[in-house]
Every structure is written in structure tokens, then in C-alpha cells.
Design a protein around this nucleic acid. Structure first.
Length: 928
RNA sequence: GGGGCAGUGGCGGAACGGUAGACGCCGCGGACUUAAAAUCCGCUGAGGGUGACCUCGUGUGAGUUCGAAUCUCACCUGCCCUACCA
């Protein structure tokens, strides 16, 4: 008997050895092809969540597999270490954000090391370290110099819980809540810094050079929201131009009024004295209203006439100017021409306020539209009418811009007349990067009374965060109240100046971390061009879908902006020097992307209880609570409650009776608890309440702690189970029983490798069979890794173990064949369960390290079966199965099929009309 | 309202248009044990039959095909994104 498998002992020993030998250092090696594998960096919340394991362990397995296939793999790890949690901890628990963050990172590093991933810790980067954020600030300055960073006063989304502004992408859902904390946002008028992401809208729409999931590409495309149309300039009666964007310039003759957003700069000017009180009131009300209030009112249109009029440039018509909050200042020009006949929103508004409706597109084949009788707008196809010389022009469906002939000819005419031009508009907004918080990279800008907005010279970076600040949630950056930080001198004139006290969005830090990993301590630039020349770009990125329109858009923007600022030039030169083709090398940060799913909490039945006591008010006050096996027929009376515990809040239980009624059950210190297994120690803490499938959260009590799993089963088991139990792209609810399948597998592998070597005489057929299983496994495991189908790869490993067990039991293979199979199994396991693979590899005498061995080569001839099951179908249904030699000829197969019992039974003596032979499937299909 | 994705045993999930349910969990039967746990062996989609076998079966309904979980159309259900975007 070999010793027992003790994963804790095996794993600790090899982890130390690998670290000592620097087995996973990634160094430039021009003799090998490079592969940059990257998984989204974690926020250092303090504990490594099972979700981190789920994201990282399979990515690591794939990186290891590529490594065994001869690639020089870089798979780095670091921390997205700035952010609000650290600051909230400071406010709540009086711990400095830096202390809190460093402590969490130290703990997470320790936890990450237990995973056995090939992270090269020499390349670790933490975004909150000055040597990192110095370069985040440097990027700001480069973008500022290039005109990509600007400051403007705008109504911005503000999270009252986080006390900071948010970028448009960070506001989610129907109620427009903060992506972080779920609180509905409010609007605030603030002077903020933006990046010109909209300058890159067109390029960001182009996903043709990246292999990313359709879903992500679609989400980004929708988010950018490109629409084609025209800008048309109307004029007020006073002569001020009002530019509008429209996707339907062909409906210009149907404009019967205009609508400005309440925030539009011309509102004040066009408003007549009589209308001023109403307009002012409406503007004030709109400003007070949060986005949710507007949504809560649904689509019920509100608005006020300004008293002013505009002139329609196509026909000189005088039309009234209204204001309404359904026109958004942040989209287009904040003003629209209203064509109620052909736009649903304008139609509703016109009906509500009795404004005229004029048909300018007449649909063909239906009865003529009648402005007085219509109940909805006609946004569809038709022929232009009432449109001067354009009447009669066919107008196809809306929103395809230039594909619509009417749009095309009208746009051309507008351009000739000088009253409009074809235009493309985007829903995408510029990226708001200012945050009114302390724990982020300070924006390197100084405000001087004499010189205005002055960028901090690069030589003065980093602008360090002061340690001694007061953490008060005021809605302004704590830095504003730090005199030493705030007051400075102007870099240009030397006069008194103040610093920008806002810090940068943490998405800015994570937009370029893939570059910092290359050389985290490099101090002559954001990264070492020599490293970049070899490793860039990222070949495979993995992470959650939730960043589709946030991080994944920002980092693409960042890379393109870096390219246009010339930041990659030294890297390109270095790349050319080592013979790389740099075409398109810096257009996209990550060439391939794969999204993993999420692990949810494990569902659970609540305890069944019978409680004695009495109803007090609406609640049941319990004197005793007993946990029972079943509730068969136990009645609910005035003094007794029976049911399943659905939830627990402190000392209160929510109980659902068998009849489906929910009862609130109060307990106190005098309540007695009788819970099997706990005896006199039983308290309310041992009562289990029902758990639905939900996201894991501490308040739900359904959190799975990877540390505990590792302590109990070992990292190999946890890694393997995470890869086996779910489709990686989908995730799903945790199942605490399923892990035992993987535990048994590894114990079996341990036993069969240590003591399975056969003693008996060898039989060529058995050896051939074992070798076939090995090669079938090589194929299945390799294909699984290639396609991120880790669960089927794991199934292949389990099947191979089953094959080895069987061969050991039967004892008919030679020692050579056995050793070959074991060596293959261990190498196939190495990416999944690196520790046990290394241990057993050493035990069977393999050279150190298994992780430096080549991936087993697949031989299709060896994997092929000698005998196959020929499936016989009659009229599409399987009627027989016969064993035949693998290379069977078509005629022979057909003959055997027609003669088979099953076929004869089901052909009823009728002749075969057609006989189809599918060689690669081993199948004959007979049609009668 | 718009867009996208997905529906397969009790469960997680397999299945290039070709043997549906690989692999595992749960469950059941048996062995071992004084007993239990662990372990090992066997069974495990539903229904029928002593049995060889037969019938049904991948959300529903049609279609294409010798053959459909897979392709096409319509519908139902669930999830995700988006939403007065002019």
C-alpha cells in the first residue's frame, strides 16, 4: 500500500519548490513564440471569492496548456487597488484606505498562491502604488496635450451614496442606479474632466480585427448607437441659429413645431415675457427632477410653449418653439424639429397640446393618412407629399439613413442650399473621469489665477496622495480640505495656485494595466518598450461580461488614444528590430476575449420547525422551537406554528406553513431550541433558512469560501471541480455534493498510479486498447482546452482514469504500455491539477518538472477503433447494432445491414428503396 | 417598446444534421462491517414485457431531410442588455 493522498502536504511542498526554482518566471525568449494570457485583475476586497477562483483557475489551466505546447506564456496578476470600498472602510472603521488596501492585498496574494497558478509575481502591479499611478497621471497629461482631455460644466450623474459623479456607462438599469452600490443617481451641475471617447466612436464600432464574443460586440455597438441623418439649421425669429439632428430630413416639410431641451442655451432668449413665468417654472422643475422621477412619469409628455417662433429653412414657415424634457440636452444638439405625423413622440406631444399635424409621407397601398383621425404616427415607408419639389420621391424605412433615397436627395439639396449637411450622430458620450473621492489617482492639473488651467509638468509626477486627510462623505473630494495638498504654486508663473482635488475614475487605472504588467517597476515610461515589443498585444483575455460597455470600451479607447499620441512608437521600433510585423499591433489591446459565467449560491431547503407559543399582534411569539424531519399533518393553531424557515433576521424567523401562509415568528432569550445534533447548545444561530439560487452575498449567507475548500480538499480538487461542474461560459449554482466526484477521481488517480502497475502477462489487444484510450483522451482534453470546454476536458481525464483502473484490474498490459499511459495521464492532468500531477510524475520517475514537459502528441491512428458498432436504421429509426471491423467497405456494410435481424423485422419484407451508408458515423440507413 | 441569448433525466451537464443523455452528483440494490461512515460492485429518461424486444421522449406546433436536440418559420417560457437617442 502506498501512502495516502494528503493534498495539503503535496501542495505546500511543490509550491515552495516552484517558487524557489522560479519555475513560472516569464522572460523574453525570442526562440519561442509568445503568448500573453490575461485575466481581469481583481479588486482587493480582502478575501479571494470563489468567483475569483472560477475566473482564474480555468484561465490558468489554459495558459499552462499553451506553455506545455511550446509557447512562452505570460500570465500576470495584480490589483485594481484604488476605489471606493477602501474609502468607505476608512469612514466606517477608521482604517486608512492605504492600510486597508495593503492588508487586503497581502492576504489575497497569500490566497492566490494557494491556487497554484503560473502567475509571475515579479510582474505584479497594484494601481494604488505611486510607481503605478505616476503613469496613470502621465497618461492624463498626454491626452490633455493631444486635446483628448477637456473640462466642462455639465449636468452629470451623481451617486448620492458614493458621493461622487459617475460616467454614463456606470449608471445602470431602468431606475438609473449606480453600478457599484445600486443607489439611483441624481443629476448635478458640475465642472468635470472628460475624455473624448466620442472621437473614437467610429473606430470603436469596428470589431473586425478582434475575435470577441458576438454578445460583447453587439452590446458595444448598441452602446455607441450610431445613427445617420442630417444636421439642419433652423433660425429663431431673432436670427439665432438652432441646429437640430434628424435621421429623417425627408420629413422636414412636416415640421410643425420645435422642441428644445429645458437646459438648451437659447431657451432664455426665445422666451417671451408672457411665457416667462411658465418657462422658468418648467426649467426649474426639470432641473430638480432626478432621472428616476422622469422615468416614473412614464411616457406622458410634459412641456411649455416659450412664446418664441422659429423659421423652417426649407419653406420659410413660422413654427412655435416649445420646451420639453423628452428632448435630452445630452443627445444630438439638445433641440429637435418635431414632425408629429411621422414620429411617435412628437405625435403624442402634438395631440396633448393640440399642435398641428401635417402628413408628408403617404404610405402606398393603404388609405390616405388623415391628421385628424390618426391615432399614432406613421414612421414607415411611403412617398413624399406636401414637400415642394420633392413630392413624389419614394421614402423607404426610417433609420437607415443614406439607404433611404428620400433622405439622400433631400440631404444633398440641404447641402447645396447651405442649410444643412449629412451627419452621423452617436449615442456614446464622452467619458467623465472626475471622481470626488480621495482613494484614486489625483488629476495632475493646477488652477492659477493668472494662467488658468495648467498641467503639472511630467517631471513633478507623481502627485502623491497625502496620508493625513479627513474622510468625510461631503460630496466633495476630501483632498479639497487638505490645505497642504490644495495650495501650491503655478508651474508656469510661480504664483499662488490650487490643485485639482478630484481623482480619476478607477477604470482609468485598469485601462492600461496590461501594459504595466510588462515592467511594473520601469521608471522611464509606462512600460518597457523592449518588453512590449515581445509580448504585445494580449493574445487571450478572459473575464466577466459585466464590463462589456465599461472596462472593455475604455481599454480599447485607451489603446487607440495611446497609439495616436505616439506612445507605442519606441515599442514599434523595438518590435521591428526583433523582426515582428507591427501592422495593426497597437490598434486593439486584446485580440481574443472569452467571457466566463458566474457562480451563484447553492439553493437549500429551510429547516422544518414546530414552534409553541402564542400570537401577539400579527406575530407569533415562540417559547419553544423544535426542528423536525417532517411536518405530516401538524396543524397550525393559536398556540402552535409549523412550517419551513424561509428567512431569518436576527431573532425573527419567517416561517411558511404547509398551506403556504407566511408567519413572522419572534424569539427571545427565553425561547428554547431543540435542534438535532446540537443538544443543549442549540440557539437560533443553528436554524437553517431557505436559500434560493441567487448571487452569493454575505447577507444571504450563501457564500462559498475557497480557503475552507482548499483547507479541506486541496487546491487541485477545487480547481478541477470548478472546471468540471459548470459550463465555463455559463456558471451556475454551487453544489457542495458534486465536489466529492472530483475528490474520488483524484484519490483514484493517486491509487492507480502508485500501485496500479500490472504484474501479469501482457496481451497485445489489451495494450492496444489502453493506448487507444490514451489517444482518445489526448484528443478530448486538447479540444476541451482549445474551446474553453473545461468540463468535457475533465470528463476525458476521468474516462482515462477509468480505463487505467480497468487495465490494472485485468492485468494484461506490459509495464511499458502501462508506464506510457500513466505518463500521458499525468501530463494531461498537469494544467488542471498541477500539484498532484507534479507529485505523481516525480514518483514514477519523470524528470522535474512535469510543467516543463511537452503536451502529449495525438495520433489519430492510435485513437481509431478497430471494431465499430454499425448502426442500422430503417426509415430513420435505429433498429439494430452490429459489430463490424472499422474499415468496412460500403457494399459489405449495406449487405450486413440488410441482413440484420432488426432491419428484417422492420422492413416487413418490403424492398429497400434506398440504402445510405455513412462511413464516418458507422451507419447504414435503409428507406423502404 | 427595441435588441440578444437560452430551454435536453431528479440535478450539473454531453452530443461535426447520423446510436440522445458522455462524465459526474443524487437515488436504489448488493458486498465489506457488531454497526455506521468510507470504500467496492451493479442499476438508474418514462411506460410496457419473464425475455429477446416494443412504444414514447431534447419547451410547443409546423417545415426541410433517408435521418433534426442540432437547420428554417411561428409560438410559449426564462434570463441579459437597452430604452423619450430625434
Amino acid at each position: 500500500m502506498a501512502d495516502k493522498y494528503v493534498p495539503q502536504e503535496v501542495e505546500a511542498r511543490w509550491a515552495a519548490r516552484w517558487e524557489r526554482d522560479e519555475l513560472y518566471r516569464s522572460r523574453i525568449d525570442l526562440s519561442r513564440p509568445k503568448f500573453y494570457a490575461l485575466t481581469m485583475l481583481p479588486y482587493p476586497s480582502g478575501d479571494l471569492h470563489i468567483g475569483h477562483w472560477y475566473a482564474m483557475a480555468p484561465s490558468d489551466a489554459r495558459a499552462r496548456w499553451l506553455r506545455m505546447r511550446g509557447y512562452n506564456v505570460l500570465f500576470p496578476m495584480g490589483f485594481d487597488a484604488f476605489g471606493l470600498n477602501a474609502e468607505n472602510a476608512a469612514i466606517k472603521r477608521n482604517i486608512h484606505p492605504k492600510t486597508w488596501t495593503e492588508r487586503n492585498m497581502a492576504n489575497m496574494r497569500r490566497q492566490l498562491r494557494t491556487m497554484g497558478a503560473i502567475f509571475d509575481w515579479e510582474r505584479e502591479a497594484a494601481t494604488s502604488h505611486p510607481e503605478y499611478y505616476r503613469w496613470t497621471q502621465w497618461f492624463f497629461l498626454q491626452f490633455f496635450k493631444a486635446g483628448l482631455a477637456y473640462r466642462k460644466n455639465a449636468a452629470v450623474d451623481f451617486c448620492p451614496q458614493c458621493n461622487t459623479t459617475l460616467a454614463r456607462e456606470q449608471v445602470w438599469g431602468e431606475d438609473r442606479h449606480c453600478e457599484r452600490c445600486g443607489t439611483p443617481v441624481i443629476k448635478k451641475e458640475l465642472e468635470q474632466w472628460f475624455f473624448r471617447t466620442t472621437d473614437y466612436a467610429e473606430e470603436l464600432l469596428d470589431h473586425s480585427h478582434i475575435d470577441w464574443p458576438e454578445r460583447v460586440k453587439t452590446m458595444q455597438t448598441n452602446w455607441i448607437g450610431r445613427s445617420e441623418g442630417a444636421h439642419v439649421t433652423f433660425r429663431t425669429e431673432g436670427g439665432d441659429p438652432i441646429e437640430v439632428f434628424t435621421t429623417r430630413p425627408d420629413t422636414l416639410w412636416g415640421a410643425t413645431f420645435m422642441v428644445l431641451a429645458p437646459e438648451h442655451p437659447l431657451v432664455d432668449k426665445v422666451t417671451t415675457p408672457e411665457q416667462r413665468p411658465a418657462v422658468d417654472a418648467y426649467v426649474a422643475a426639470a432641473a430638480r427632477k432626478s432621472e428616476i422621477d422622469r422615468t416614473a412619469e412614464g411616457k406622458d409628455k410634459t412641456g411649455v410653449f416659450t412664446g418664441g417662433y422659429a423659421i423652417n429653412p426649407v419653406n420659410g414657415e413660422r413654427i412655435p418653439i416649445w420646451i420639453a424634457d423628452y428632448v435630452l440636452i445630452s443627445y444630438g444638439s439638445g433641440a429637435i424639429m418635431a414632425v408629429p405625423a411621422h414620429d411617435e413622440r412628437d405625435f403624442e406631444f402634438a395631440r396633448k397640446f393640440n399642435l398641428p399635424i401635417r402628413i408628408v409621407i403617404q404610405p402606398e397601398g393603404t388609405s390616405d393618412l388623415d391628421p385628424d383621425k390618426m391615432t399614432e404616427a406613421w414612421p414607415g415607408e411611403g412617398v413624399m407629399v406636401n414637400s415642394a419639389q420633392f413630392s413624389g420621391t419614394p421614402a423607404t424605412a426610417s433609420s437607415d439613413g443614406a439607404k433611404n433615397e428620400a433622405v439622400r436627395v433631400v440631404t444633398r439639396w440641404l447641402e447645396q442650399q447651405g442649410i444643412g449637411r449629412g451627419a452621423v450622430n452617436y449615442r456614446l458620450r464622452d467619458w467623465l473621469i472626475s471622481r470626488q473621492r480621495y482613494w484614486g489617482a489625483p488629476i495632475p492639473i493646477v488652477y492659477c489665477e493668472a494662467c488658468g488651467v495648467v498641467p503639472v509638468p511630467e517631471s513633478e509626477l507623481p502627485i502623491l496622495l497625502p496620508d493625513d486627510v479627513d474622510f468625510m462623505p461631503t460630496g466633495e473630494s476630501p483632498l479639497r480640505y487638505h490645505a497642504g495638498f490644495l495650495h501650491t504654486t503655478c508651474p508656469q508663473c510661480g504664483g499662488p495656485a490650487t490643485r485639482e482635488t478630484d481623482t480619476m475614475d478607477t477604470f482609468m487605472c485598469s485601462s492600461w494595466y496590461q501594459y504595466r504588467y510588462l515592467s511594473p517597476h520601469y521608471d522611464r515610461g509606462p512600460f518597457d518598450p523592449a518588453e512590449g515589443a515581445y509580448w504585445l498585444p494580449v493574445d487571450q483575455y478572459t473575464g466577466g461580461i459585466e464590463h462589456a460597455t465599461m472596462h472593455l470600451m475604455y481599454t480599447r479607447f485607451f489603446t487607440k488614444a495611446m497609439r495616436d499620441c505616439g506612445i507605442f512608437q519606441p515599442t514599434a521600433a523595438a518590435a521591428q528590430a526583433i523582426g515582428r510585423d507591427t501592422t495593426g499591433m497597437f490598434d486593439e489591446p486584446m485580440l481574443r476575449l472569452f467571457n466566463q459565467g458566474m457562480i451563484l449560491g447553492e439553493p437549500r431547503e429551510g429547516d422544518l420547525i414546530i414552534a409553541q407559543g402564542a400570537f401577539v399582534g400579527g406575530k407569533f411569539s415562540a417559547t419553544s422551537v423544535q426542528v423536525v424531519e417532517a411536518l405530516d399533518g401538524v396543524p397550525v393553531t393559536e398556540t402552535q406554528v409549523a412550517g419551513e424557515v424561509m428567512n431569518r433576521v436576527e431573532t425573527t424567523l419567517q416561517v411558511r406553513t404547509p398551506a403556504g401562509q407566511d408567519i413572522v415568528l419572534d424569539t427571545d432569550e427565553n425561547t428554547s431550541f431543540d435542534i438535532p445534533g446540537f443538544g443543549a447548545d442549540a440557539t437560533i444561530n443553528q436554524i437553517k433558512h431557505h436559500l434560493d439560487v441567487e448571487k452569493m452575498s454575505k447577507t444571504q449567507g450563501n457564500v462559498v469560501a475557497p480557503d475552507e475548500l482548499v483547507a479541506e480538499f486541496g487546491a487541485d480538487t477545487v480547481r478541477a471541480y470548478l472546471m468540471f461542474a459548470f459550463r465555463w461560459d455559463q456558471g451556475g449554482p454551487w453544489d457542495s455534493k458534486g465536489i466529492y466526484g472530483v475528490v474520488r477521481w483524484l484519490h483514484d488517480v493517486w491509487a492507480v498510479v502508485n500501485e496500479g502497475a500490472p504484474q501479469g502477462t501482457s496481451d497485445p489487444a489489451a495494450e492496444r486498447d489502453l493506448r487507444r484510450k490514451v489517444h482518445q483522451a489526448i484528443k478530448k482534453v486538447s479540444d476541451g482546452l482549445e474551446g474553453f470546454s473545461f468540463n468535457t476536458a475533465m470528463a476525458g481525464l476521468m474516462e482515462l482514469k477509468n480505463g487505467l483502473q480497468r487495465a490494472a484490474r485485468e492485468g494484461k498490459v506490459s509495464r511499458e504500455a502501462w508506464d506510457e499511459a500513466v505518463a500521458a495521464l499525468l501530463r494531461l492532468m498537469a494544467p488542471f491539477t498541477p500539484f498532484i500531477a507534479e507529485e505523481l510524475w516525480a514518483r514514477v520517475g519523470g524528470p522535474y518538472s512535469i510543467h516543463n514537459q511537452a503536451w502529449p502528441a495525438y495520433d489519430a491512428a492510435l485513437a481509431a477503433e478497430e471494431e465499430i458498432t454499425l448502426v442500422v436504421q430503417v426509415n430513420g429509426k435505429v433498429r439494430d447494432r452490429i459489430q463490424v471491423p472499422a474499415g468496412i467497405a460500403e457494399e459489405e456494410a449495406k449487405r450486413l445491414a440488410l441482413e440484420s435481424d432488426g432491419a428484417r423485422r422492420h422492413m416487413d419484407g418490403k424492398p429497400a428503396r434506398k440504402v445510405i451508408f455513412v462511413a464516418e458515423r458507422g451507419m447504414v440507413s435503409i428507406v423502404v
